[in-house]
Design a protein around this nucleic acid. Structure first.
Lengths: 275, 275
DNA sequence: CAAAATACGTAACATACGATACAGCGCTCC
DNA sequence: GGAGCGCTGTATCGTATGTTACGTATTTTG
């Protein structure tokens, strides 16, 4: 079974004429980047002419050069999504089914945070800590618990935090309370829910600022969102993992708490005395 | 010092207009591949027009789109040359407040799983997959969302899964439905809730098998529990972290799903057709 | 609330890219 | 040694791509 272009090449390189073989070798030498550049650059690097490059990719079975490039990109994408596969096997300390799941989850978190700057988180935290407006939280089928989790914390350190639960008609009616100063935190990963998208759109039209927690393929809500947090969700399981988003949520909770420290501490003391 | 385009983006994303921010988000979401495609494809993926993409790369300081692409390719080349650098300690690309939180969380997970044997997880999974009895889930103030999350998944692959919500009196009355063959999954971390402890005790007396998710100091419920999962919760924040428990929950969900594969798949198909 | 500034998209444009036709060269096999 | 075949490069063509100008919508500011 041939899965990568690199294999395909080494399989057929024997049956190639000299010029095309040089093209093949140059591509293998610094795979796959040369293949993503233009035909002219590729040909220059290989020391052959453009048509030779084109004949080369044609011999590999591609209809045209763009098709060849797309395949290379897809290959690269698959590689980049699962860094674990590249790490020359972390020799699993306990060999069972646990390890791959844990490793994938840890990778997901690292990857998620790699693309998440302090500044971005700080901006969102500032927005959530801004007490001039209300904060609403809602999630999809599997992610609503994350919304609840976040709401449970935020509601303690500041007033006007609401988790939208129950039937669609119930929370849709609450749109009437939402305005420019309010923030709506939405959790939505595949398969994206129409009801949430519609809800987000309406809220957006009312000027509500949306903070979206989604997966790397971005829920359609992203187009209405002020802030988008894209978490990695792929794990060796039948389900997607929300763990990375969960950790981002916890990080945000911590950041908001820090910002509200003064007021928050006072509030917490008050709450304590209420018990 | 800004070394990668990704950092450059997260540095300036705050100062961008809406459209360009969408472009930035889509690029970050599946970095860097979108940026290697054509302007048209990029714009389509981001849901904006081509000029917006060009203005976006211009704002990042590039003279034209090809220059932007070249930089991305160079970056990719450097990454591909040294795969290890990605996984072995990403030398914290953002040195701010994010990193300690993330690092602590990752440590918590590793520690949690270090004391968790495959066998233990397999036993619990087997118990949860045993369809002769019912499964109840409940959690404390901050952990109830974890119970919900788990219930949302388990309820799909098997019948008789119930999340206990609402007022204490409501779920206490449901004790009457619980017996020897049933399983009660409880999430309880500091500060442990009396109501939950009492509930667990009664359930235990009725012969219910208890699976407890708690922190490393062990909730008093541990006395009654058949299985105890102790997760690390310490993070540099005002709150404890439930992330490690969350990952254990996801792992269990995966394990149960695998055990029920045959029946579960049939169930899922049925559910699909119900929509 | 009005006016100015900024941002965004549509559409036309120019360029650079991939594709193709053709000619020259070398190699192989009578 | 000559004829035929195959491989390669040059030059040209059509097109897809990046670019720019302009009008409209939206937001911001006084």
């Amino acid at each position: 079974m041939i899965s990568s272009i690199a294999e395909l090449i080494s399989d057929r390189i024997g049956a190639m004429p000299a010029g095309e073989r040089r093209a093949a070798q140059t591509l293998i030498a610094n795979y796959p980047l040369i293949g993503l550049k233009t035909v002219a650059e590729f040909s220059a690097a290989a020391g052959v002419s453009s048509p030779t490059i084109l004949r080369f990719v044609a011999r590999l079975g591609f209809q045209n050069y763009p098709e060849f490039q797309s395949t290379l990109q897809d290959e690269l994408a698959a590689q980049l999504q699962s860094p674990a596969s590249r790490t020359l096997n972390p020799p699993s300390p306990n060999g069972g089914a646990v390890s791959p799941m844990l490793e994938a989850t840890l990778d997901n978190m690292r990857e998620t945070f790699r693309h998440l700057s302090d500044k971005q988180l700080a901006d969102i935290a500032a927005k959530l800590a801004d007490r001039r407006g209300k904060t609403f939280l809602i999630g999809g089928r599997f992610t609503d618990p994350l919304a609840r989790y976040m709401a449970a914390h935020l509601a303690i350190i500041q007033p006007n935090v609401f988790h939208l639960a129950g039937q669609e008609s119930v929370w849709r009616d609450r749109l009437i309370d939402m305005g420019k100063r309010d923030v709506l935190v939405i959790f939505d990963i595949r398969r994206y829910q129409d009801s949430l998208v519609r809800f987000a759109e309406t809220a957006h039209q009312r000027g509500v600022q949306i903070v979206l927690f989604t997966d790397q393929w971005l829920s359609p809500i992203a187009r209405f969102a002020r802030h988008v947090i894209a978490g990695r969700t792929a794990v060796p399981s039948a389900w997607d993992s929300s763990a990375a988003l969960f950790v981002v949520a916890e990080t945000l909770i911590g950041a908001v708490t820090r910002q509200l420290e003064a007021d928050g501490a006072k509030r917490i003391r008050e709450l304590e005395s209420l018990r």
